[in-house]
């Protein structure tokens, strides 16, 4: 539709899709890094994947700044501009939490007790699935090919499941006779992991509100 009139908007659109691609890249690298960590512990492969996650997060940041600059050049209606800027700023916490979690594990040399590994693996898998569903939802907002509503239910389910696992693991952790310092460290990791699906849930509601707002 008269695309020549909306050159700046098309550039913003391309940048946003590129941002979602980097978000997906950060998610995949984080999932692989956690898989390696829970299987092999702190190793070079884990550190390499943590570094790759950090790079994807930085690239996503760069793209977000580019989108912000274009928005300040007055692309789109003020209402759409506010929605997109606010949403991207909130979404940026997702690659941030991936990067921070891996950094925390490496920096504090966290060792997850053997009896919790299976449940932690499940927690990571369900959380990553929630983020993947959110990416789909976000892409749907900008393409209209995907209905954003069913994805909210999926993300909501995953978030509840993660909460359930977290409570279970927490109870097992504090019932166990392991060193109290190791308990605190593992607890911090659990809280960070649970934050991922919480964040995906909050963001999916935000995307839903933006899509509903556009209806007359």
């Amino acid at each position: 539709m008269l695309r020549f009139l909306f050159r700046k908007e098309r550039q913003v659109e391309q940048f946003i899709f590129s941002y979602i691609d980097y978000l997906g890249e950060a998610r995949e690298r984080f999932a692989k890094a956690m898989e390696v960590y829970l299987r092999d512990g702190l190793c070079d492969n884990f550190r390499f994947l943590a570094e790759q996650t950090h790079k994807a997060e930085s690239k996503a940041d760069d793209v977000r700044y580019a989108v912000e600059s274009m928005m300040y050049e007055q692309a789109l209606l003020p209402e759409s501009r506010g929605d997109i800027l606010g949403l991207l700023e909130a979404v940026d916490a997702v690659p941030g939490i991936f990067d921070r979690t891996l950094y925390t594990i490496d920096n504090r040399r966290i060792q997850v007790p053997e009896f919790l590994i299976a449940e932690l693996r499940e927690m990571v898998q369900v959380s990553v699935e929630a983020v993947e569903a959110f990416e789909k939802q976000l892409r749907g907002l900008f393409t209209a090919h995907e209905d954003v509503r069913p994805l909210i239910q999926l993300i909501n389910r995953n978030e509840s499941q993660v909460d359930h696992i977290e409570r279970n693991v927490m109870r097992q952790l504090f019932d166990s006779p392991i060193d109290p310092f190791a308990k605190i460290q593992t607890k911090d990791l659990l809280v960070e992991l649970a934050d991922i699906s919480d964040l995906a849930h909050q963001l999916s509601r935000r995307v839903y509100i933006i899509s509903v707002k556009r209806r007359v």
């Binding site: 008269l2 009139l5 908007e9 759409s80 900008f142 209209a144």
Partner: peptide, 14 residues
Amino acid sequence: LRWNLFQSDAALRL
């Protein structure tokens, strides 16, 4: 019409 955010924005501005 089920336009996406960019399409509805462009249509409204036009």
